[in-house]
């Protein structure tokens, strides 16, 4: 059923059947993306959370070779326009899927459970640390001392290590689990990661400001 649908796609330039392809096999004209294509389809990959990095890059490079505007520069306006649009989608697909965090977020979106980053609720496992860190930052802003700076730096390194571990854990989550429990678990972990990233950003900003203020003296 699905097959007959894609078989009906014909090249806009020469009428050859193009299947689910992004360029015409006959005249190489870029084709409009099939309606409803997700980012996995744009890269010609199965819709799976586990991806092989090398395969992802191979597919991205092969499709870039066929679709990139440089390949269609001397073609007619429609071909140039389609190549630009398709390349832009391809670039977005690669940027999203190669990064496990971005891929996880996209997965949640695909399944109608997007992660809202303005979520003010602190993930439970982080609550104590977040509170502690915010307090230290507040103190550092009002009465900076070298000892306090060192302490904040240590906190930063510990949180960075934790973030790194959480990110590493994602791949085992992707590989090991599937089915109903996955989405909830994924959402919990990704919001922890997002929260840690924001917190680390705050720390860097505060430390940076302090340095700036210091050098002006």
């Amino acid at each position: 059923m699905h097959g007959s649908e894609t078989q009906e796609r014909q090249c806009w330039r020469c009428g050859t059947g193009v299947g689910a392809g992004l360029v015409c096999p006959h005249c190489e004209a870029p084709q409009p993306l099939p309606p409803g294509s997700d980012l996995f389809a744009v890269l010609g990959l199965p819709r799976r959370l586990v991806l092989d990095g090398a395969e992802l890059e191979r597919s991205y490079h092969a499709r870039s070779r066929a679709l990139h505007p440089d390949r269609h520069q001397t073609a007619e306006a429609r071909a140039r326009e389609l190549s630009e649009r398709a390349s832009a989608m391809l670039n977005r697909a690669y940027r999203t899927l190669r990064d496990p965090v971005a891929r996880g977020r996209y997965w949640l979106e695909l399944h109608g459970k997007p992660l809202h980053l303005d979520n003010k609720e602190v993930p439970a496992p982080l609550a104590a640390d977040v509170f502690d860190t915010q307090e230290k930052l507040e103190e550092l802003r009002s009465s900076p001392t070298p000892e306090l700076r060192d302490e904040v730096r240590q906190t930063r390194d510990a949180l960075a290590a934790r973030l790194h571990a959480l990110q590493e854990d994602l791949s085992s989550l992707y590989a090991g689990r599937n089915g109903d429990g996955l989405l909830g678990e994924l959402k919990r972990r990704l919001s922890e990661i997002a929260y840690l990233q924001t917190l680390l950003g705050d720390i860097e900003a505060t430390l940076g400001n302090q340095r700036g203020a210091h050098s002006r003296h």
Binding site: C27, A75, R80
Partner: peptide, 10 residues
């Protein structure tokens, strides 16, 4: 041929 014609149209 399709490519060549596309280029001439462009």
């Amino acid at each position: 041929e399709g490519d060549a014609i596309g280029a001439a149209v462009a």
